Amino acid sequence: MTRDPRPSILERYASADTHSGEIRRAAQRLVQNGLMIGEDIDRVVESDWGRPGMDVK
Rank of each mutant, 00 (worst) to 15 (best):
M1A: 14
T2Y: 10
R3N: 15
R3F: 15
D4W: 06
R6L: 15
R6I: 12
R6F: 15
P7D: 07
P7A: 07
P7V: 09
S8R: 14
S8L: 15
I9G: 00
I9P: 00
E11K: 03
E11C: 05
E11D: 13
E11P: 00
R12G: 08
Y13G: 01
Y13Q: 00
A14K: 12
A14F: 02
S15E: 07
S15A: 03
A16Q: 09
A16R: 10
D17Q: 14
T18E: 15
S20G: 10
G21E: 13
E22K: 08
E22L: 08
I23M: 04
I23T: 01
I23G: 02
I23A: 04
I23Y: 03
I23H: 00
R24D: 02
R24Q: 11
R25V: 12
A26C: 15
A26P: 02
A27C: 11
Q28S: 09
Q28V: 12
Q28I: 09
R29K: 13
R29Y: 08
L30C: 04
V31T: 06
Q32K: 13
Q32T: 08
N33C: 03
N33D: 09
N33L: 09
L35D: 09
L35Q: 13
M36N: 01
M36I: 01
I37H: 04
I37S: 11
I37V: 09
I37Y: 03
E39P: 01
D40M: 09
D40R: 04
D40P: 00
D40A: 11
I41Y: 02
D42E: 11
R43F: 10
R43P: 00
R43H: 07
R43G: 04
V44P: 00
V44F: 06
V44M: 11
V45Y: 02
V45C: 06
E46Q: 12
S47Y: 13
D48S: 08
D48I: 00
G50I: 00
G50Y: 02
R51C: 08
P52S: 11
P52F: 03
M54N: 10
M54W: 07
D55M: 11
D55Q: 10
D55A: 14
V56K: 04
V56H: 00
K57S: 12
K57Q: 08
